[in-house]
Computed example of a mutant assay.
Amino acid sequence: MIRNTRRGRSTFRGRTDDDLYETGARSTTALELRDFGEEANSRLPNRGVGHERDKGVEVAATYIMSNTNPTGWPIQALLGNNMHSGLFIIPDNGDPEGRFLYDPSGSYMSREIGSGRALYGPEVSPEDYLQYQLRDGPNVTVRKFATTPEEEAEIIRRADEIGSGGWAGCTTSVSEAVSGVGPFLGVEKTDWPVVLDRQLRGLNRHMDEAADLESLRRVLRKP
Rank of each mutant, 00 (worst) to 15 (best):
R3N: 06
T5L: 13
T5Y: 05
T5E: 07
T11L: 15
T11F: 12
F12H: 08
R13V: 05
G14N: 03
G14V: 07
G14H: 05
G14I: 01
G14M: 01
R15W: 10
R15D: 10
T16Q: 11
D17S: 15
L20Q: 11
L20C: 08
T23H: 12
R26A: 14
S27A: 14
S27H: 08
T28E: 12
T29K: 10
A30R: 11
A30S: 15
E32T: 09
E32P: 10
L33Q: 10
D35T: 04
N41Y: 03
R43G: 04
R43V: 08
R47N: 04
G48K: 02
G48Q: 05
G48L: 03
G48I: 03
V49K: 15
H51Q: 11
E52W: 02
E52M: 06
E52L: 12
R53I: 10
V57Y: 06
V57E: 15
E58K: 13
E58R: 12
V59H: 03
T62E: 09
T62I: 11
I64W: 09
I64C: 13
N67M: 00
T68R: 14
T68P: 06
T68S: 13
N69V: 03
N69A: 03
T71R: 10
T71V: 15
P74M: 06
I75V: 14
Q76R: 13
A77L: 14
A77R: 12
L79R: 13
L79E: 08
L79Y: 11
N82F: 04
N82D: 14
H84Y: 09
G86Q: 15
G86W: 08
I90F: 09
P91W: 01
P96T: 14
E97H: 07
G98C: 02
R99T: 02
R99I: 00
Y102T: 07
D103V: 14
S107Q: 02
M109K: 15
S110D: 15
S110K: 03
I113F: 00
S115K: 01
S115V: 11
S115C: 11
R117N: 13
Y120W: 05
P122D: 07
E123F: 00
V124E: 03
D128V: 04
D128Q: 10
Y129V: 10
L130T: 02
Q131S: 07
Q133T: 06
L134Y: 06
D136E: 13
P138C: 07
P138D: 14
N139P: 00
V140P: 02
V142C: 09
R143E: 04
T147Q: 02
T147V: 15
T148L: 04
P149M: 05
E151F: 05
E154I: 07
I155Y: 01
I155S: 05
R158G: 08
E161F: 13
I162H: 04
S164Q: 08
G165D: 11
G165H: 00
W167D: 00
T171V: 07
T172Y: 12
V174Q: 03
S175M: 07
A177P: 04
V181H: 06
V181E: 04
P183W: 01
F184Y: 15
F184T: 01
E188L: 05
W192H: 10
V195P: 00
L196M: 06
Q199I: 08
L200D: 07
R201I: 07
M207K: 06
D208V: 06
E209Q: 14
D212V: 02
L213H: 02
S215K: 02
V219R: 01
R221S: 12
K222W: 00
